[in-house]
């Protein structure tokens, strides 16, 4: 009889086994979500410069916050997470994994790691591309860490939600596109419950300052970049752990439905 694989061996096996999936259609959609807006921005800025115009470096900051952070990053999580362990639940291939002696709790993270690495790669490429537009080079590491850290947390959150709820993508979309913008009118401390806040703290810039026209907006709070990064990493780790715990504890039969929340 073979010894049961360690959690590390399980992570390595699932990550390596499912890695080819990121090179298929969904993986390229993920890359496109980053590359298309950055490439379009570069094209527009190049055309403006060719016509003799002056492209402000603040435009790069706007593209970073308004497009990459607020739109593309959540969409990436909504696209990638269903291809993680949720996919095996829906395709009813999860029993093939669960009848192995490997620890079931390691499977969500193991299957999510290739998607995390692939998404992080393109986010780094995207941020470097935006740097061509201009901007303070000293803020570049902060932006890179902010996006990759948020990607870690958002992918983990969506993986967990996908295991907890049948319509996980819907709940995730509500969180990203309703809660994150709406929180600005709630008491300031609640801002710390958004990815946007931690990304802004790490990146050292905001999409926009609160103006007098925004009557309901609350004062923007600040968090030390180190704490913001720690919060993103810990939140992501907690979500992966909860997803693992959910899978470990939930009986999932051949029909797959027992795993639904």
């Amino acid at each position: 009889m073979n010894a049961a694989p360690t959690p590390l061996a399980t992570l390595r096996a699932t990550a390596r086994g499912y890695a080819p999936r990121v090179l298929q259609g969904r993986g390229w959609v993920l890359a496109g979500l980053v590359l298309v807006p950055v490439a379009l921005s570069l094209l527009i800025f190049t055309l403006i410069r060719l016509k003799g115009g002056e492209a402000s470096s603040t435009e790069a900051v706007k593209v970073f916050h308004e497009v990459l952070v607020k739109m593309m990053l959540p969409i990436m999580a909504l696209v990638a997470a269903p291809a993680g362990i949720r996919e095996d639940l829906e395709q009813r291939t999860l029993p093939l994994l669960l009848v192995r002696p490997a620890p079931a709790w390691a499977l969500p993270l193991g299957k999510g790691l290739p998607w995390f690495a692939w998404g992080a790669l393109w986010l780094v490429v995207g941020v470097l591309g935006l740097q061509v537009l201009g901007g303070d080079p000293s803020l570049l590491p902060g932006r890179l860490v902010a996006l990759v850290g948020a990607w870690w947390g958002e992918l983990a959150l969506m993986t967990l939600v996908g295991l907890l709820f049948k319509r996980g993508t819907l709940w995730g979309a509500l969180y990203f596109f309703i809660w994150e913008p709406l929180v600005r009118i709630f008491p300031p401390a609640l801002q710390r419950l958004t990815f946007t806040h931690h990304i802004e703290s790490l990146a050292g810039s905001r999409a926009a300052e609160v103006g007098t026209s925004q009557l309901l907006a609350q004062e923007q709070v600040s968090t030390h970049p180190g704490l913001a990064l720690l919060a993103l990493l810990l939140f992501g780790a907690a979500c992966w752990a909860l997803a693992g715990w959910k899978l470990q504890r939930t009986p999932v039969g051949l029909a797959g439905s027992e795993g639904e929340g």
Binding site: T10, T14, G17, P20, E87, R100
Partner: peptide, 24 residues
């Protein structure tokens, strides 16, 4: 298990290798 269910987009040999690793 019953049915014709296997993960999409994977090669059989690589998938088998993964299943072997998951079996220790």
């Amino acid at each position: 298990p019953e049915g014709d269910r296997l993960p999409t987009g994977l090669r059989a040999d690589r998938w088998l290798r993964m299943m072997g690793e998951l079996s220790g």
